[in-house]
Design a binder for these strands. Structure first.
Lengths: 260, 260
DNA sequence: TCCCGCAAGTGGTCAGACCACTCTGCCAGC
DNA sequence: GCTGGCAGAGTGGTCTGACCACTTGCGGGA
């Protein structure tokens, strides 16, 4: 209990939090409340360590953590700057978490369905001309049989991402993007097996509904799109399209039933 | 271009990634693919630094980053152990991001609605007796006017969390939990203003539908629950309950397009 | 038998050193 | 006058070795 107060006399009432956490907190405050905008430089590590009375080691660890959270970005020899906020770091964390828990494809689909249908509906209400143009662009790629599978997958992903963006609600993107990330492999399968025509057709129907501002139709088309894909995946996995013998016969992942 | 290859001769073809990142990657692999379960200890910093041929400084920074991502937890004098995966770190990152981008409460609600309705429907299909008992338990707390506001908020949160768990789909929990975290404050408001009776009543209706295994009804009751809460929040914010004059009159956050 | 205290091992912090890189500004060459 | 290259200052990246604070477990004394 005598503590290290004698040597490290900085804080009269030494809290139990370690110094790194202190510095992290201080830097975070500086960024958020200190009015630092993305792109603004942080003081050099040596300056910070002098100002805060801690060793450079501690400062480096603190900055490293902020960097791993995507708040800040260090460039060798150049300095450390505030990073523009994006959802990528969260996506990465999300992905890690999902991978860890070894979730099943069905589980992912079960979450994706209500999300994407809601996105389609909202996009139908809020889409701008710019977004429609971007969606058209992805359709051109997806509809071109000369394009590579990789390009098709990319166009497929982008279609859904742009749709999420078209809602004007950033949370949709944040939540959806990690799920998409995990579905890339399955996309490759469906697009490879059934060709891109099917996806192109589905997307066209969704896009039409979004363009004419019909949220219910957009939502419905999206539901069919996802459920069809899901069936194909099941077939590809060797299983019968769906477990028809179950108590709840109809639509594959019957749950998220929502016609809403 | 002569580089530091002479002194740091470890990697013949030195990649541009820094050593810390290498160690982070290595440790991550060790955790995910090496079959380390939550609670298992990592080697000591000194051991890792010896094994990987880097200084302890680097190892410490790497572990610090993993810790800031919630993958690992260091205890002074005891060691570093793998942390059980939770959504908390993601919630924190989420919250930071939202604070930065100043996102609106409506946006959160817009994501929450389709998720929770899907959860309610799925829970109605997959609930077990054990889950029903747990849900009953939260209802007892929420229905007891002698309990503190804090207890009510907790019971409210738990109701939704258990429901997500009852779906048997872990992804639902993961996606929902950070959103819930961000809604604690708003919950405190609604529960404080309108008392817990309303929430108790709503939950009772949802629970009944889940108990009788009716996904459509459960979904519908959940929709009403969330939309009502949302209206109350709007009122609390001083705005009129909803903009009834909109083109799409009926249900409040219709697409979640909110009446906006 | 039980409890206390000590020793070993671990994470936390420090100091100072060197390397690799970026940036800027000066100066020589055109 | 303008341009190109070079040098120096400043910054992040890594290393070393030391010490402190903490946890844990074991052994010896009451």
């Amino acid at each position: 209990m005598t503590e290290c107060l004698l040597k490290h006399q900085r804080n009269a009432v030494m809290s139990r939090v370690d110094r790194v956490s202190e510095v992290v907190q201080a830097l975070e405050d500086k960024i958020f409340q200190g009015g630092l905008a993305p792109g603004d430089p942080l003081p050099s590590e040596r300056d910070i360590s002098a100002q805060m009375g801690v060793s450079r080691t501690v400062v480096r660890e603190a900055i490293g953590r902020l960097a791993s959270l995507g708040l800040v970005r260090s460039v060798h020899g150049s300095g450390t700057r505030v990073e523009a906020p994006t959802g990528r770091q969260i996506s990465v964390g999300f992905e890690r978490l999902l991978r860890w828990s070894e979730c099943r494809l069905e589980d992912l689909a079960a979450v994706r369905l209500p999300l994407e249908t809601a996105i389609a509906a909202s996009a139908a209400n809020h889409r701008s001309e710019a977004h429609l143009a971007l969606l058209d662009e992805t359709q051109r790629t997806l509809g071109d049989p000369d394009q590579s599978l990789k390009a098709h997958v990319k166009a497929d992903l982008e279609f859904h991402a742009i749709l999420a963006e078209a809602t004007g609600n950033p949370i949709f993107q944040m939540v959806l993007s990690p799920i998409q990330e995990l579905l890339i492999e399955s996309r490759r399968q469906t697009l490879g097996k059934h060709g891109s025509e099917l996806a192109h057709d589905h997307h066209a129907r969704i896009l039409a509904a979004v363009r004419q501002g019909d949220p219910d139709l957009a939502s419905e088309e999206m539901r069919r799109h996802i459920q069809t894909n899901f069936q194909h995946l099941h077939e590809a996995a060797g299983r019968p399209a769906a477990d028809r013998s179950g108590p709840e016969a109809e639509t594959p992942p019957a749950d998220f039933s929502p016609p809403v």
